[in-house]
Design a binder for these strands. Structure first.
Lengths: 209, 209
DNA sequence: TAGATTGTTAATCGATTAACAATC
DNA sequence: TAGATTGTTAATCGATTAACAATC
């Protein structure tokens, strides 16, 4: 199994690019086209595809429909992916209302929070945190998002993994310990900005400021 | 100049770990301590430090205060970093209210939106998008966040770079073209979840489901 | 057929890790 | 001094790119 995050990421990008190309009337594409579309080399595209057993024909390139179908399968697009959110604060709420999930077959099915007066502007039910465990089990949820305050993040993760969650997207800016068959991806806004600050400071220094 | 994103990221992690260690009373640390704290090898820590000219003493490790000071300088913590947001929708608002920025010296100074009835729950002024250019110039803002709908993202980027922005954090899930001395970091929630979906589907397959 | 493109192998590049001399 | 730790060089690992035979 390929675990390189950048590589999986490129599959998502290929998928998006192919949807665009299809809508433009493309029936087949060459590694060149896709490379240009997502900003990598043609060799990279062919290498990625061979890694996942995606093949084309020597002279005719890749069939757009087949490629989309295969990528969708790899990325779990053949069924609706149910996701829950822990934490109905600013970020949790933004994710509940995020318009980009639906057309990608990602469905936020519920949110959980200790505070109950948060039935605000979301179309999605916000339930007490105590109900999370049962909900995950009953609905066989595999993916959870952590958007609770730092202090609560580790215990929420423990609760999630104990209930059967296998993949977590964590927005709390602390290091979480995860045991067993569960992977955690972190999104850290401060780190993202610090990275930009580093680059910008470097730029300015080179200009002699 | 080091451009490896993971490496810069580790600097942020070292900084955070050092703050914790300092609060626990540590005056000096060894590469070993920091390695454990952020989950890398001691060799990685020493390599990173040598890359940025951070040095310790052969037997006595690194001085915590000195290290914090140096890292703060590299990451631009010696002054308040002013950031603007384009787009006062769900994500933009969440970022305006994000509690983690202040203590890191990151200040969201203004948001801009085409729609004006968004003076909602934010402490930060939401201004018309037409005022963005002047604001960036007058206040010498170098960093901007794009949280507008996909359709508007490229034109907002062009506006930002034309006004003097040098670093952009983009939340719109499309590929943006950026010319010249400006770097763009992307945060894509769908990709993050698709990555998890891929891993989870793989896990389940191995279990024979 | 001649030309173009894939699929794969080998080469390169970059990042991480191991090893160890220097030295506190 | 003896022991422990840094700083750096060399080795390893992994990912990307180049090259090219196979072939449509």
């Amino acid at each position: 199994m390929v675990t390189n995050k950048n590589c999986i990421n490129r599959l998502s990008k290929y998928k998006n690019a192919l949807a665009r190309l299809k809508s433009l009337g493309f029936v087949k594409v060459f590694s060149d086209n896709l490379a240009d579309a997502i900003g990598v080399t043609a060799a990279q595209v062919r290498k990625d595809f061979s890694l996942f057993g995606l093949s084309g024909s020597k002279r005719g390139g890749y069939n757009v429909d087949e490629l989309i179908k295969s990528l969708n399968e790899i990325l779990g697009k053949n069924k609706v992916q149910k996701v829950i959110i822990a934490g109905a604060g600013n970020i949790g709420t933004a994710l509940m209302n995020y318009p980009g999930f639906e057309k990608e077959g990602i469905q936020i099915v519920a949110a959980f929070d200790i505070s109950q007066d948060r039935q605000i502007e979301a179309k999605i039910p916000v339930c007490p945190l105590e109900e999370m465990k049962d909900f995950i089990r009953k609905n066989k949820i595999k993916i959870g998002i952590i958007a609770v305050p730092d202090m609560a993040a580790q215990s929420v993760l423990d609760l999630m993994t104990a209930s059967g969650i296998e993949g977590i997207l964590n927005f709390a800016p602390i290091r979480l310990n995860c045991s067993g068959d569960c992977i955690v991806n972190n999104v850290n806004f401060v780190f993202e900005l610090e990275n930009l600050i580093y680059h910008v400071s470097g730029l300015d220094k080179n200009k002699g400021q």
